[in-house]
Amino acid sequence: MAAAAAAGAGPEMVRGQVFDVGPRYTNLSYIGEGAYGMVCSAYDNVNKVRVAIKKISPFEHQTYCQRTLREIKILLRFRHENIIGINDIIRAPTIEQMKDVYIVQDLMETDLYKLLKTQHLSNDHICYFLYQILRGLKYIHSANVLHRDLKPSNLLLNTTCDLKICDFGLARVADPDHDHTGFLTEYVATRWYRAPEIMLNSKGYTKSIDIWSVGCILAEMLSNRPIFPGKHYLDQLNHILGILGSPSQEDLNCIINLKARNYLLSLPHKNKVPWNRLFPNADSKALDLLDKMLTFNPHKRIEVEQALAHPYLEQYYDPSDEPIAEAPFKFDMELDDLPKEKLKELIFEETARFQPGYRS
């Protein structure tokens, strides 16, 4: 834990890192770190609560700039109880001085990944967590956004079992017609939660990839272990087919990539493993919904509104309290091709509203 900075004593240090967030945020305490930044909790002297502050230093890398800009653009436009918001952003007053960006968010005690390492969940908890994931996802999908990296560590939890989806750095506007060349190379989302079509096709992607990830998360809540822990690309596919069985001819016809289709045709026939054999203690309604989410063919996979209306979630289902976005989200430009200098300018502009004396 960093010592509390005395008023006016300059930035606090946390594990050798400068955290320049005073005077409003003090009493910093280390939480963890990701690929390009550290997260601390801090005391907000204005709202009198502890908050989470993520320090991001992305400006050396085009990919990190892209992810940072995506996350900020999306989260500043989203407003939903099951999606983490941005409360404040701290950065230098000029673009030349801006080396880091500090993002202030609600402090959540833990995440689903940490929880599943230590606790076996009751059916009631599984049901409530799944409902909140789908409630947040309904809003995301209504904005025409794909999260693309749903996994237990991106689901934040607090002691009252509130759940918030975080990390929109890989999110995209849904565009089933656009052929994202190089899709697989830039697709760094965790393999275990990846839909089979991501490994088999490169053309376009749809909201059904997020539903697949939610199915993987439900299976993990039922058993405290990942359902498809593939060691590499082909191993991942083999794990999936080992449980779902061989795809039907109709399902194979959806695979545009001939090499991928021929690979699947070359494999020995596998039978589907019954879900109640894998999860003998699970609620039968939970397994019915799991089956509809972990469907090989993305066109037959359940959609988020149908999933919310499934009998497993009937005690929570309330369409009048499951809000959607006001308007579909649009990125003005494809960020993939922009140089990091341009992305830095866009991050600077996007964060201006939090600067003292800002006038829109």
Results as ranks from 00 to 15, higher is better:
Thr206Leu: 01
Tyr317Gly: 15
Asp337Gly: 15
Ala307His: 12
Val214Trp: 03
Pro323His: 01
Val14Cys: 07
Pro196Asn: 04
Val18Trp: 15
Gln249Leu: 01
Arg50His: 12
Ala4Asp: 09
Met13Val: 03
Leu290Ala: 04
Lys99Gln: 03
Asp20Gln: 12
Cys127Thr: 13
Phe331Pro: 15
Ala219Thr: 01
Leu278Arg: 13
Glu305Tyr: 14
Leu308Cys: 12
Asp321Phe: 13
Ile72Ser: 04
Arg191Gly: 03
Gly8Lys: 07
Ile56Val: 05
Pro93Asp: 12
Val49Trp: 10
Asn257Gln: 06
His239Gly: 04
Ala174Ile: 12
Ala307Cys: 15
Ile256Pro: 14
Pro247Lys: 04
Asn271Thr: 04
Gly204Val: 00
Leu287Ile: 12
Lys203Glu: 01
Gln236Tyr: 06
Ala3Glu: 11
Gly182Ile: 03
Asp321Tyr: 00
Glu33Cys: 13
Gly182Glu: 02
Cys127Pro: 11
Arg277His: 12
Gly215Met: 03
Ala42Gln: 11
Val104Asp: 02
Gly136Thr: 11
Asp235Tyr: 00
Ile165Tyr: 06
Asp111Gly: 07
Phe348Gln: 09
Pro298Leu: 05
Tyr358Thr: 10
Ile227Met: 12
Asp111Arg: 04
Leu290Cys: 11
Leu265Met: 04
Val14Pro: 02
Thr159Lys: 05
Tyr316Trp: 15
Cys40Trp: 13
Val18Gly: 00
Lys231Leu: 11
Tyr128Phe: 00
Trp192Ile: 01
Arg261Ala: 07
Asn154Leu: 01
His310Gln: 03
Met98Phe: 08
Leu343Ser: 09
Pro247Val: 13
Gly16Val: 00
Arg135Pro: 06
Leu290Gln: 00
Ala171Ile: 08
His310Lys: 06
Val21Pro: 12
Leu75Gly: 13
Ala219Asp: 03
Asn297Trp: 08
Val188Tyr: 11
Pro176Thr: 00
Pro323Trp: 15
Ala219Gly: 06
Arg353Lys: 03
Thr206Ala: 05
Val273Met: 06
Asn87Ile: 01
His299Lys: 07
Asn201His: 06
Asn123Asp: 07
Pro58Glu: 13
Ile198Thr: 09
His120Met: 08
Tyr233Ile: 01
Trp192Gln: 02
His178Asp: 04
Arg225Ala: 06
Ala325Cys: 14
Ile227Gly: 05
Glu341Arg: 05
Leu252Asp: 12
Ser213Lys: 04
Leu252Glu: 10
His80Met: 13
Asp124Thr: 12
Glu350Thr: 15
Gly10Asn: 12
Phe354Gln: 06
Thr118Asp: 11
Gly16Lys: 07
Val214Arg: 04
Trp212Tyr: 02
Val173Leu: 01
Pro152Val: 11
Pro196Ser: 02
Leu252Ile: 13
Asp167Leu: 10
Ala5Gly: 12
Val273Ser: 11
Leu338Asn: 09
Pro152Arg: 02
Asn224Tyr: 00
Asp167Met: 07
Arg277Gln: 10
Arg79Met: 12
Glu33Asp: 00
His125Tyr: 04
Leu76Ala: 13
Gly357Arg: 12
Gly16Ala: 09
Phe348Trp: 11
Leu156Phe: 04
Arg194Cys: 02
Val21Trp: 06
Met98Ser: 14
Ile217Pro: 02
Val39Ser: 04
Pro328Thr: 00
Ile198Ala: 08
Ser202Thr: 02
Met13Gly: 01
Leu130Lys: 06
Val273Ile: 14
Leu112Phe: 10
Gln249Val: 08
Val188Phe: 01
Arg261Phe: 06
Asn144Asp: 04
Gln306Asn: 15
Asp318Val: 02
Gln132Gly: 08
Gly357Trp: 14
Gly215Phe: 03
Leu155Glu: 06
Leu338Cys: 11
Ser41Ala: 08
Lys292Gln: 09
Ile243Trp: 11
Ala2Met: 02
Asp336Asn: 02
Arg359His: 10
